[in-house]
């Protein structure tokens, strides 16, 4: 079945990120000058303006900074998933990323909840990083 949700709009900044995702590697940009981890990827550091960058692999564990529970589908592809959870997750390494929390009832999600990555292989090109409650 055709994937009905928006897919990544890959550009020169984000290509290494999505290539990493395809291999189930969560690659985050790290500024070579000031060390800032940045997400989403960008060609220049928002703190020190350096364009020197390296990619580091994050372990895929973190905590929920905040979350929102969508009860309405603003794009038809999400209709069958209502209600679903969009979250900002703080990775243990320090970067904050937007994602979904899956694998639990939306009512069980809370700020500072420990979560771990789970990969959603949506088609032959893309794997999307999502998070679920940390398994004991």
């Amino acid at each position: 079945m055709e994937y009905a949700k928006p897919l990544p709009q890959v550009n020169a900044d984000t290509r290494p990120f999505w290539q990493g995702c395809r291999q189930h590697l969560l690659k985050i940009q790290k500024c070579k000058n000031c060390g800032l981890l940045r997400c989403p990827p960008a060609f220049i550091c928002p703190e020190c303006l350096s364009s020197e960058v390296e990619w580091v692999a994050a372990k895929g564990k973190g905590r929920v900074y905040s979350f929102a529970v969508y009860h309405a589908a603003y794009q038809p592809g999400f209709q069958d998933e209502l209600p679903y959870v969009v979250a900002l997750v703080d990775l243990d390494e320090g970067a904050r990323m937007i994602t979904n929390i899956v694998g639990c009832d939306p009512g069980e999600v809370y700020c500072e909840m420990a979560v771990e990555i789970v990969w959603d292989d949506v088609n032959e090109t893309f794997s999307i990083p999502k998070f679920r409650p940390l398994q004991k």
Binding site: P6, P8, V86, I128
Partner: peptide, 8 residues
């Protein structure tokens, strides 16, 4: 932007 991937 790419936030739409997650339904945001």
């Amino acid at each position: 932007g790419d936030e739409a991937i997650y339904g945001h």
